[in-house]
Amino acid sequence: MTHVSVTVGDDHRGSLDGVVANLRASGLQVDQVLGTLGIVTGSAPDGALDALRGVEGVASVDAQLTHRLPPPDAAVQ
């Protein structure tokens, strides 16, 4: 399973529900639908990523990055 962010294209932001339904049908386990931004986060089997990219209205599917701070006692943060 890969954690992904699905960016919905500007032309489909108004019909987000339909895009989300198609994403689910294509294997996305949805964590959050961020309506204000037009982005859906979730996870999917590696083999399903191309299917997600093929869903109508999807602009991009990207593996989530991890952001890590240095420990609290580091001089440079």
Binding site: H3, Q32, L37, T41, T66, H67, R68, L69
Partner: peptide
């Protein structure tokens, strides 16, 4: 959006942005 251990993922950060914009 970052844990007490100092790490976070896109999912939490994007959710934070969405919240701030809302």
């Amino acid at each position: 959006v970052l844990s007490d251990a100092g790490s976070g993922t896109d999912g939490g950060i994007l959710a934070g942005i969405d919240w701030a914009v809302s």
